[in-house]
Amino acid sequence: MKGKVVSYLAAKKYGFIQGDDGESYFLHFSELLDKKDEGKLVKGSMVHFDPTPTPKGLAAKAISLPLE
């Protein structure tokens, strides 16, 4: 699924993505496929991810940034 980063707290390594389906997904650095892309996780960045339901809500897994 595609989505847009709505927040990312680099110090805490987490944030949120708004998916194309309108839902909010929890984003964690550990799910970023290329850790070098962390600096690109800023508000408004477009990402691809696997939407995954968890006991705490919806989460983004296997997060990647589109090729530039």
Rank of each mutant, 00 (worst) to 15 (best):
L41W: 01
S45R: 15
Y25L: 02
I17F: 01
K2M: 12
A59H: 09
A60G: 04
T52V: 14
S64L: 10
A62M: 10
M46K: 11
E31L: 03
G22V: 02
I63K: 01
K2Q: 11
L65Q: 04
P66Y: 15
K35S: 09
Y14H: 05
Y25N: 01
K61E: 04
M1Y: 05
K35A: 10
K35Q: 10
D50I: 15
S7T: 13
K12S: 09
D50V: 15
V42L: 11
G57Y: 04
V6I: 13
Y14G: 03
S64F: 13
I63C: 04
T52M: 14
M46P: 10
L32C: 03
Y8G: 02
E31C: 06
F26D: 02
S7D: 08
G19H: 01
K4Q: 10
T52C: 13
V42H: 12
K36P: 04
S7I: 15
A10T: 11
S45T: 15
K35P: 14
Y8K: 03
V42Q: 11
P53T: 13
L33K: 11
Y25A: 00
G39L: 12
G19T: 04
P66T: 14
Y14Q: 05
A62E: 07
F16C: 07
E68Y: 12
G44R: 03
S24W: 14
G15E: 03
S24T: 15
A60V: 02
A59T: 11
K56N: 10
K12I: 06
F26L: 06
Y8H: 03
S7E: 10
T54W: 06
E38N: 04
G3F: 00
F29K: 06
L65R: 05
F49V: 01
L58K: 10
S45Y: 07
E31I: 03
L65V: 14
A60D: 01
K2P: 06
S64Y: 14
I17P: 00
K43I: 10
Y8S: 03
L67P: 13
K56V: 07
K40G: 07
G22D: 05
L41Y: 02
Y14I: 06
H28E: 06
A11Y: 11
Q18S: 09
S45K: 14
I63R: 00
D20T: 09
K2A: 10
L9D: 15
Y8V: 06
I17S: 00
G39P: 14
A10Q: 11
T52H: 14
Y25M: 01
A59N: 06
V47G: 01
P55I: 10
A11Q: 11
G15T: 02
P51D: 02
L32Y: 02
P51Y: 07
D34T: 06
F16T: 06
H48F: 15
K4C: 13
K61V: 09
S30A: 09
S64W: 15
G3T: 01
L32W: 02
L58D: 03
G22K: 05
T54N: 07
G15H: 01
K13I: 03
T54C: 07
K2H: 14
K13N: 05
Y8W: 07
K61P: 01
A10L: 09
G3C: 03
K61W: 07
S7Q: 11
G15Q: 00
F16K: 05
S64P: 01
G19L: 02
K4M: 12
V42R: 13
L65D: 02
K13F: 05
K43T: 10
V42G: 07
I63M: 03
D50R: 12
S64H: 15
K12P: 04
D37V: 08
V42T: 11
K13A: 05
G19C: 03
Y25I: 02
K56Y: 10
K36V: 07
G57C: 04
F29T: 06
A62Q: 11
K56E: 07
F26P: 00
E31D: 10
G15I: 03
L58C: 08
T54F: 05
H28N: 06
I63E: 01
S64N: 08
Q18G: 05
K12F: 10
F49P: 00
A10N: 09
V47C: 02
S24K: 13
A60M: 00
A11V: 10
I63H: 01
K4P: 02
K12H: 10
P51T: 06
T52E: 12
A59V: 15
E68D: 13
Y14V: 05
M46I: 15
D37P: 02
G15S: 01
L9F: 15
A60T: 02
V5K: 02
L9I: 14
Y14R: 05
K36R: 13
S64A: 10
L9S: 15
F16L: 06
Y14L: 05
H48P: 01
F29S: 06
F26H: 04
D21N: 08
L27F: 15
V5P: 01
A10F: 13
K61A: 07
G22S: 05
V42M: 10
G19N: 03
G57L: 03
D34H: 09
A59F: 10
T54K: 05
G57K: 03
K13H: 10
I17V: 07
G22Q: 05
G19D: 03
A60E: 02
K36Q: 11
L65H: 04
G15P: 00
A62N: 15
M46A: 11
A11D: 13
E31R: 05
L33C: 10
K56R: 13
K40P: 02
K13P: 00
G57E: 00
A62R: 15
A11K: 13
L58T: 04
K12M: 10
G3A: 02
I63S: 00
Q18I: 14
K35L: 08
G39F: 12
L9K: 12
D37G: 06
K40D: 04
V6A: 09
P55L: 11
F29G: 04
S64E: 06
V42C: 12
K13L: 05
P53D: 12
E23V: 10
I63A: 05
G44T: 03
Y25Q: 00
